[in-house]
Computed example of a mutant assay.
Amino acid sequence: MIRIRRAQKSDAAAIGRVHVETWQATYAGLLPDALLAAMSDVRQSAWWQRLLADPGQARGVFVADDQEMGVVGFGSCGPVRDPPEGLDGTETRVGEVYTLYVEPDFQNIGLGRRLLDALFRQLRADGNDTAVLWMLADNPTRFFYEGMGGARCGERIDTMAGKDVEEVAYAWRNLDAPLIRRKLAAED
């Protein structure tokens, strides 16, 4: 059984491990090999340890916790950092999904949907009516977000390890939309 729960400080090492594993699996060929090879469980775990030590930031971090394997996925959210130009101005409070990663062996069983639901609930509890998420334009996971009702609303170029990469933004303009809730409930 896998449950979605709020992350704790003691989850930092597991989140760091999943972070590195999923980046190396997902972004091979999309990001510079040197960047992916240089990733370290220790550095990522230390970064997550600092974040989870801050109660204000920790409240937006959730994990998928398998009772046998431990943490097999995670997601984080909070205030929007870089609003896409495609927002139309009717959004009053915009939050952002910063991360959402599930280990490859645990994908396609609904964990991403359940984590996204927890993140949307947190953003809504924090008073947001809209959520955005930035991702690499060539990442095939974009189809998951489109299937979950995300609408493409922006583009930008970012530089990672000296390489320019195209990113796209998706938006959910009503975090209480029945489409999102029905899809999540039907596929759990």
Rank of each mutant, 00 (worst) to 15 (best):
G86A: 08
V61Y: 03
G147Q: 10
R142V: 08
P104G: 07
M148D: 07
L115K: 10
V132G: 02
E166C: 14
A25W: 03
L35I: 01
A186G: 06
K9C: 07
G147M: 09
A177F: 06
I4Y: 03
F62P: 00
H19A: 03
D188T: 14
V71R: 08
L115W: 01
D126L: 03
L136M: 11
L35Y: 15
I2D: 04
A125P: 04
G56I: 08
P104H: 09
G110S: 07
G127V: 09
R121I: 04
R142Y: 09
Q67G: 11
A161C: 10
A161K: 11
D164R: 12
F106T: 04
F120K: 10
T130K: 00
A177D: 12
L87I: 01
R121G: 06
A46Y: 02
E91C: 04
E21D: 15
G70Y: 09
R59T: 00
Y98Q: 01
T159V: 14
D82I: 12
S10W: 07
R121P: 00
V80W: 03
K163N: 03
Q122G: 01
K9S: 08
M39D: 00
E91W: 03
T26Y: 12
E167A: 03
A25Y: 05
G154E: 08
L119G: 01
D126P: 04
A34R: 05
D188F: 13
D158M: 15
G154T: 06
V61W: 05
K163C: 10
K9L: 14
Q107H: 11
W23H: 05
L123E: 00
N139K: 12
C77R: 01
E146Y: 04
L52Q: 01
W47M: 11
G29P: 06
R17G: 09
L30Y: 05
M69I: 11
A151M: 15
D138M: 14
W48Y: 07
L51S: 06
R43M: 07
Q44I: 07
I4G: 01
D138W: 09
E146S: 10
V18F: 06
Q49C: 08
Q122M: 02
V97Q: 00
M39S: 06
L184S: 13
D126G: 07
